[in-house]
C-alpha cells in the first residue's frame, strides 16, 4: 500500500509544481525554493512527519523534505543544547544531502567535460 501512496503523493507534489510553473512567470529556481519553504511550514505544523509516515519515499524524495530536516534539526537541537542548538543543530540532519551532493558535483565536474 505504501508503494501506491508514494506514487500518488510524489506525483501530486510534482503536479502542483508544474501548474505553478506553467501558469505564472516563476522559473524552476523559484519553484524549488518555494517548495523548500513549504516543507519548513508543513513541518512547523506537524503535517510533514505524518506525510512521511503515510507515503514513505513519496515525501522524503521531494525537495520539501530538505526544509523538513532543516526545521527538525533546529527544533531538536534546541532541546539538546538550548539556545546554541538553533545554530549548531540546524544543519545536522540535512548534512548528508548537502555533503553528498557537493562531493558528487565536484568529483564529476573534475572528471567530465561539459557537453553542449
Amino acid at each position: 500500500m505504501i508503494f501506491l501512496n508514494s506514487f500518488l503523493v510524489g506525483g501530486l507534489f510534482c503536479l502542483v509544481g508544474q501548474i505553478i510553473l506553467d501558469n505564472t512567470k516563476l522559473t524552476p529556481g523559484h519553484v524549488t525554493s518555494l517548495f523548500t519553504v513549504l516543507g519548513v511550514v508543513l513541518s512547523f505544523f506537524g503535517i510533514y512527519q505524518k506525510l512521511i509516515d503515510f507515503s514513505g519515499a513519496g515525501a522524503t524524495m521531494i525537495i520539501s523534505n530538505f526544509g523538513h530536516v532543516l526545521y527538525q534539526g533546529a527544533y531538536t537541537g534546541y532541546h539538546e543544547m538550548q539556545l546554541l542548538g538553533f545554530v549548531s543543530g540546524l544543519l545536522t540532519k540535512a548534512s548528508s544531502a548537502i555533503v553528498s551532493s557537493i562531493i558528487c558535483a565536484f568529483v564529476l565536474a573534475l572528471i567530465f567535460k561539459p557537453k553542449d
Binding site: I2, F3, S6, F7, L8, V9, G10, G11, F13, C14, L15, S55, G56, A57, G58, T60, M61, I62
Partner: peptide, 10 residues
C-alpha cells in the same frame, strides 16, 4: 514521472 520517481525510491 514524479510519481514513478518516488515509487522507484520507495
Amino acid at each position: 514521472v514524479g510519481g514513478s520517481v518516488c515509487f522507484i525510491g520507495q
